[in-house]
């Protein structure tokens, strides 16, 4: 097929000729030649604009601090996948794809903020008032508010508050940080009133607020967050690939391995005899009628 496009469709993101690659009107090579950074390019890609220096610095800060988070579900996935020794990208992809509604739910936090800020505008409420309403509505329904709580940093994510402060220092604190700060104030106050333990803001609450105030849409922000973590997933996978044992079950290692047989705790049906083919139909009918199997169906 040579240089023909695989699919043809209109795009306002980029075009590529034999001479150059142009993204949102800017020649990529020229951007690099003139000293712009990868973070600058992300603003151009997702927002079609060159950011201010402060915005670029804030994104550098956010991405650099978000890149590595040691043992989290995404890194665990990458490590587990590479134990089978596929090509490295399979492990990296598995790490990135682990992000969902519990691990780094960046887009959902963004949509929550947009929804309540839009309501504030429509209902003539202040940001502080709508934040209190948001806290009350979620907690009254017994639902967690996105952006709070992290199962490992039980005293608060060490990156979160410094991120808020950096945003203020660089003066890139817009309506989203005002809302997030108000959310935290009302959330902590209500939990204290109810005698419940302190649950701190997490990196979704802090980092995603930054990305929103920098103009990234909820999904663009999620894309930046999860793919930034992809680098450290790759590092964990690569370390395991180069220094660790394939299969992760060797008995020759000094430490018990991740897939050592002793790691299994089985809670399924008791061991049972396999019916012969002659017994099968009666056996299967009885099993179907008794329905005990239903408690195991997934």
């Amino acid at each position: 097929m040579g240089r023909e496009p695989f699919f043809r469709r209109k795009s306002s993101i980029s075009y590529k000729t034999e001479e150059k690659t142009v993204v949102r009107g800017y020649d990529l090579s020229e951007l690099a030649e003139k000293g712009y950074t990868f973070c600058d390019a992300l603003f151009i890609l997702f927002q079609g604009r060159i950011p201010t220096e402060a915005e670029e610095k804030m994104l550098e800060y956010e991405m650099a601090e978000f890149l590595e988070h040691s043992m989290s579900p995404s890194a665990a996935s990458a490590i587990a996948v590479i134990s089978g020794r596929p090509m490295l990208p399979a492990a990296v992809a598995a790490g990135v794809m682990t992000f969902g509604s519990a691990h780094g739910p960046g887009a959902a936090h963004g949509y929550m903020m947009n929804k309540y800020l839009e309501r504030a505008l429509k209902e003539g409420k202040s940001i502080d008032e709508i934040a209190r309403i948001c806290v009350d509505e979620y907690l009254d329904a017994g639902r967690p508010i996105m952006g709070f709580g992290q199962p490992q940093h039980t005293d608060g994510d060490p990156r979160a508050e410094p991120t808020h402060i950096k945003q203020e220092e660089l003066k890139v604190d817009g309506v989203y940080l005002k809302f997030q700060r108000a959310l935290e104030k009302h959330f902590y106050a209500r939990r204290e009133r109810e005698g419940r333990k302190y649950v701190a803001v997490n990196m979704i609450g802090a980092g995603n607020t930054v990305l929103a105030d920098l103009g990234f849409s909820p999904n663009a922000a999620w894309c930046i967050g999860t793919l930034t973590r992809g680098y450290s997933c790759a590092a964990h996978a690569l370390y395991t690939m180069k220094k660790g044992r394939a299969w992760a079950a060797s008995k020759n290692e000094p430490m018990v391995q991740m897939l050592d047989l002793s790691m299994i705790k089985y809670v399924g049906p008791e061991d049972r005899p396999v019916p012969t083919q002659e017994e099968r139909q009666e056996y299967a009918k009885k099993q179907l009628e008794e329905g005990e199997y239903k408690k195991w169906v997934i």
């Binding site: 240089r3 469709r9 980029s14 075009y15 000729t17 009107g25 951007l31 003139k34 201010t52």
Partner: peptide, 26 residues
């Protein structure tokens, strides 16, 4: 793989500003 210019409907081509000009346009 090339992406033909005729399939592109984003912002018109524009010069990349120097870093000195950045604060004026950003």
């Amino acid at each position: 793989t090339l992406t033909p210019k005729e399939d592109y409907d984003g912002p018109e081509e524009r010069p990349v500003p120097s870093l000195e000009e950045r604060s004026k346009i950003a």
